[in-house]
């Protein structure tokens, strides 16, 4: 089967600063790929480049064998959806339904009214994320966990084949982390969506990701299954010695925890 998303020799960054060079990746449909790396290693930059927010400085990105450069903005937004880390709309009192309905814009255009079919997609997305009952609530009144789910519901309403999530688990309580990452897994496994997400909490990586890409020093240092990448051998050179890699007591991928300096 064709790779859902394929990246070859990608360089990305900002006009005056290159952040990542020579990144090559393949992502299959239904697969969850976690981007990890220290602060400033380019996780978000890579995600934004994939989403088309930043122009690539070199290299190729293709979806299902078609170059992403050849797609128009809207076509691209029908394939790739981004759920950004910062939610600036949190201050702007749209209703939940309006916020999620914006996800239909790539399909419906910016001027035509939504059809009944669009409304069904919006309704399904809200139900999937458990925010359907909040439809008439205003965004500023939502809790952090609710807002995250609303933003994910909007990305879902785009009916994307590739979902790009920037730190979906940060600032969430354990309960919401588990719930949200569970939804992400089900989107991949049941709906066949390819998911790329950034995670700075390495304890969560093995639970949600099928594969892990380790970014550091302006390049992609390693890609592989969590069991292979989440090892002292890979992590210590990048994150430093203050970490502990433990086998998960109930099986599954390894856990990475911080080890405080001076502890035994």
């Amino acid at each position: 089967m064709n790779a859902a998303l394929s990246v070859r020799g990608l360089a990305c960054g900002y006009a005056d600063r290159r952040v990542l060079t020579d990144v090559s990746l393949d992502l299959r449909a239904g697969e969850v790929l976690a981007l990890i790396g220290p602060n400033g290693s380019g996780k978000t930059t890579l995600l934004h480049t994939l989403a088309g927010l930043l122009p690539p400085q070199a290299g190729e990105m293709a979806w299902d064998g078609r170059s992403l450069d050849g797609l128009g903005r809207r076509e691209r937004a029908c394939v790739l959806a981004l759920s950004p880390q910062r939610a600036e709309e949190a201050a702007w009192p749209l209703t939940v339904a309006e916020a999620v309905a914006l996800g239909r814009a790539p399909h419906r255009g910016w001027f035509r009214p939504l059809t009944a079919e669009d409304e069904d997609v919006v309704g399904r997305s809200m139900r999937r994320l458990g925010v359907a009952t909040l439809a008439e609530r205003l965004l500023p009144g939502l809790s952090g966990g609710e807002l995250r789910r609303v933003l994910l519901a909007r990305a879902l309403a785009q009916e994307p084949r590739v979902l790009l999530l920037d730190e979906p688990a940060s600032y969430l309580d354990l309960h919401y982390q588990a719930e949200l990452l569970g939804i992400v897994r089900s989107l991949a496994v049941e709906d066949g969506v390819a998911v790329v997400l950034t995670l700075h909490d390495l304890a969560l990586v093995a639970a949600v990701a099928d594969r892990v890409a380790l970014l550091a020093d302006g390049r992609l240092r390693a890609v592989g299954e969590p069991g292979a990448i989440l090892s002292a051998e890979h992590l210590v050179p990048v994150f430093g010695p203050h970490l502990e890699v433990l086998p998960h007591p109930r099986g599954g991928g390894p856990l990475v925890l911080p080890r405080l300096p001076g502890s035994p």
């Binding site: 927010l53 128009g72 809207r74 691209r76 937004a77 309006e98 914006l102 996800g103 814009a105 910016w110």
Partner: peptide, 23 residues
């Protein structure tokens, strides 16, 4: 008034608007 949906998107930030396919 015709720009109301693009305005909804822009109020969420340039990143959001662009990722929704807005020029």
């Amino acid at each position: 008034w015709f720009a109301s949906r693009p305005l909804d998107a822009l109020a969420g930030g340039d990143a959001v608007a662009r990722s929704l396919g807005l020029a």
